[in-house]
Amino acid sequence: MIEIREITKAYDGLRAVDEVSMTIKSGEIVAVVGTSGSGKTTLLRMINRLVEPTSGAILIDGRDNRDLPGHELRRAIGYAIQGYGLFPHRTVAENIATVPKLLGWDRKRIDARVDELLALFHLEPAQFRARMPHELSGGQQQRIGVARALAAEPAVLLMDEPFGALDPIIRGKAQDDLIDIQRRFATTIVLVTHGIEEAIRLGDRIAVMDKGKLLQFATPAEIIAHPATDFVAELVGSDERAFRMLSLTPVSDLMEPGEAPGAPIDASASLKDALSEALWSGRRALPVLRDGAIVGRVTRDSLISRAGRPQ
């Protein structure tokens, strides 16, 4: 659990982060979203003390994060950034092994961990261990960056626009990977992004920041349905919110018994995808597929009624 208590960072009297308080639960993904200059990166960097706050405090699992020297604190917290920051003079394996080595793990354990992480990120260990960072594609570099952040099994992972430089298809894949890994290790993730789409897709809860202030901290559904301020409403986008709402729920939630013609849709697909398919193919209902068998249907009318503002 990360408790942020009235944290403030001022540069020359200007408050980059202004009395922000929030509590992040263990094992959840919190997406911090805002425009550039909103203070979201500064807030993130105060958690691992790359930036020291002007006032306020941050508690991680009940301990003030100033109890340890900054560098020791950072070894216990994963950190992945937009440019990846891979060390260009070190191999992929050496990059991933950075923190375990700093912590003095023995060689065997480090090697095992490196291979485990490479496999986890779909990179064949034998093939990638000895590569240099410049020999990797952007997507591969990104994965190594995250693998390095996770190497010492941190309970908390901080991510600053980790997918910013990827093209849309690879980004989607990387986001899926992140969700898988988070479920597997139950890592607490704080992720900074400027895209509301990404925040809705990844965040269990979303923190919206503007001009250093925390405007709203709530679940995606709550943010879409009841934006706290005009700024949040604008960020969510009034012309898109019906579809954003649908994108939060899987088809299985709205499934009913019955049959329908045509190609089925997967139960884990989002309601947004289902509605889009129903409209496009001109069908009143779609069959729903789970584990290779048709298990029910989802109707267009139920989808449309689900898109309205929740009462």
């Binding site: 604190l73 950034i81 440019g83 920051g85 060390f87």
Partner: peptide, 18 residues
Amino acid sequence: IPPSVQEAARGVGMTDTQ
């Protein structure tokens, strides 16, 4: 040295000397 590398080195918890 690229700022992202510097940032990463700090972020993984290296001391100034390291």
